[in-house]
Amino acid sequence: MMLPLPEGEFDAYLFDCDGTIADSMPIHYLAWQRALAEYGATFPEELFYAWGGRTPVSVIEDLNEQQGLAMPVDLVDERREQVFQQLLPDVRAVPEVLEHILSSYGTLPFAVVSGSSRESVTASLNALGLLDRFDVMVCAGDYLNGKPDPECFLAAARLLGVSPGRCLVFEDTDFGVQAAAAAGMAAVRVPPPWQRHPSGVSSA
């Protein structure tokens, strides 16, 4: 079933990647669990989803502070990404979002706007066969302030040459929706995994 869109005409679609294009949040959570377990850190599933949209570096830094740890940020992030890449063949597209991508491709420019690394986003889109659908990618490292700051969405609009008010954002997180609103953009909220997977999200 296609997601309903807000009223109005739009000149570009901006998509978050994880949990929006790619149904990858359960896989990301498993990768986080495995990487953090090596350092005795915990990351409750509820907090993982609450922090959706943040960059991995900021998550590790805050977990260090909260749990009195000194995990090496770069190494943990590298390990998390390594496990995610191993699990990536299992990823699928979010059907409700895929329908919009397939139906509007070629008529509107698309951008991916993600808190994940360019490597991770590229791998996810490649696995889904969708990489060539996107004109612009704005990923972690391309901007200073992560969601809910609007910087990443404004950067994507600028790269596409489209006014922010004419962009429609597809997002699955509170931070992402807040960032879109701060950028002056309309947004479509993508259902979370537990609504798409009634049996629940695996945390094994």
Rank of each mutant, 00 (worst) to 15 (best):
G106N: 10
Q85P: 03
S124Q: 07
R118W: 08
L108Y: 09
L102T: 05
Y105V: 13
H100W: 13
Q86M: 14
F110A: 03
P109R: 02
A93V: 05
L108I: 05
S124C: 11
L98T: 01
R92E: 14
F110K: 02
G115W: 09
A111F: 03
H100S: 11
S120C: 13
L98C: 06
R92V: 15
L98N: 02
P95W: 00
L108S: 05
T122K: 11
L87I: 06
V91A: 11
R92A: 13
L88V: 06
L87M: 08
L102Y: 02
H100L: 11
P109T: 02
S116M: 11
S103G: 10
I101E: 04
A123D: 01
F110Q: 03
R118G: 10
I101T: 01
S103Y: 09
G115Y: 07
V112D: 06
P89I: 05
F110C: 03
R92Y: 04
G115P: 03
P109D: 00
V121L: 08
T107I: 12
R118E: 09
L108F: 09
G115M: 11
A93T: 01
Q85T: 15
P95R: 00
P89F: 01
L98G: 02
V94S: 02
Q85W: 13
E96C: 09
S114H: 07
E96V: 02
V91S: 08
A123H: 03
F110W: 01
E96G: 07
V97W: 00
E119F: 15
P89Q: 09
S117R: 06
L108E: 06
P109L: 03
P89G: 09
P109G: 03
I101G: 05
V113D: 05
P95Q: 00
R118Q: 12
F110D: 00
V113P: 05
A123V: 02
P89E: 06
E119M: 15
S103W: 12
D90C: 13
Y105L: 13
V91F: 01
V91E: 09
V91W: 02
Q85Y: 14
A123I: 00
H100M: 06
V94M: 03
V112F: 07
P95N: 00
D90Y: 12
L88S: 07
V113I: 10
A93M: 04
T122L: 05
S114M: 10
D90M: 14
V121A: 09
D90P: 12
L102R: 11
E99D: 12
E99V: 07
S124Y: 00
G115C: 10
L87S: 06
S120Y: 08
S104L: 14
S117P: 08
V113W: 08
S103R: 15
Q86S: 15
V121Y: 04
V112Q: 09
A111N: 05
V112T: 07
V94H: 04
R118T: 10
E96H: 04
I101N: 04
L98W: 02
S116D: 12
L98I: 03
I101Y: 01
